[in-house]
């Protein structure tokens, strides 16, 4: 076993195909107990297979994680950089990895501590509530075919982005299975309209027009809704000044 006398950025070992250490650097000697002269003595039992696997594909330069025994610790995680020569001697450099992972482990530990304090009964009730809210959103915009060519979508409750996302998805699916030339979105039963909700509704109207190639009308608008639809320039993409009965009379006549 020979000490090599030049400066390297990381501890270095050279071992032959049977795991005998042939040469080492000062830094390696400082970190590892090299008295036995055998690589196996430095490797934690759980990492031996990795070295065996690396040897099996000798010839390929690689870097892998392994737990090694140092002079101060029975088990320390290293990145092992390994290259081979034509006689299957391994040239290895070792970078301690524990510090890199420390923050991640601390974060994980924090999460585990929180987990230990979690009341899963409450957690499950919260999930149930979320599912109920989702269902409510689904039911707040039913798709009703009035005839082969007229679709009616009455909206209920407040207009939020989440609600319109759910409704629009269902409506796109429904219109693509028919040939609706007139799509009526009824806002008579709408309460408060949120900005992100109205933007999503605009997207939905454009989507319906694109899929059906037909007309979309916003009906049942009350004076309280006018400012927000005006703010987002709905007049430019959709007719807004009708009631359901008026539109139906027009389409019958």
């Amino acid at each position: 076993m020979q000490l090599i006398d030049f400066e390297l950025p990381l501890p270095f070992l050279k071992a032959n195909n049977t795991g005998q250490i042939i040469s080492y650097s000062y830094q390696a000697e400082e970190i590892f107990d090299l008295s036995q002269g055998v690589l196996l003595n430095l490797i934690d039992e759980g990492s031996i297979k990795k070295f065996e696997n690396a040897r099996a594909i000798a010839g390929k330069n690689m870097c892998f994680e392994a737990n090694l025994k140092t002079k101060t610790s029975q088990i320390t995680l290293f990145d092992v950089y390994i290259t081979w020569d034509h006689e299957h001697n391994a040239y290895m450099q070792f970078a301690v990895k524990e510090k890199d992972n420390e923050r991640l482990f601390e974060k994980l530990q924090e999460l585990q501590n929180r987990l230990a304090a979690t009341d899963f009964e409450l957690y499950e009730k919260k999930e149930m509530l979320e599912r109920t809210l989702l269902r409510l959103d689904e039911l707040s915009g039913p798709f009703i075919p009035l005839s082969n060519s007229i679709a009616y979508i009455p909206l209920f409750g407040d207009i939020t982005q989440e609600k319109i996302s759910i409704i629009s998805e269902r409506c796109y699916h429904a219109v693509s299975n028919g040939e609706y030339s007139l799509n009526l979105i009824d806002v008579t039963s709408v309460g408060y309209i949120y900005d992100d909700g109205v933007l999503k509704l605009k997207e939905m109207i454009k989507g319906l027009r694109l899929i059906t190639g037909g007309e979309v009308k916003l009906i049942g608008m009350s004076p309280k809704h006018t400012p927000i639809f005006h703010k987002y320039n709905f007049e430019s993409i959709v007719e807004t000044n009708h009631s359901l009965s008026k539109v139906l009379n027009m389409s019958v006549s």
Partner: peptide
């Protein structure tokens, strides 16, 4: 997977963190 060089110790910890959640929920 770790032995076969396919994942890192950090991945292993992530998996066991998620597993912890499942265990806590199953146990509850």
């Amino acid at each position: 997977l770790w032995e076969n060089f396919e994942i890192t110790v950090a991945d292993e910890h992530l998996a066991s963190g998620v597993c912890d959640f499942i265990l806590a929920r199953l146990a509850s």
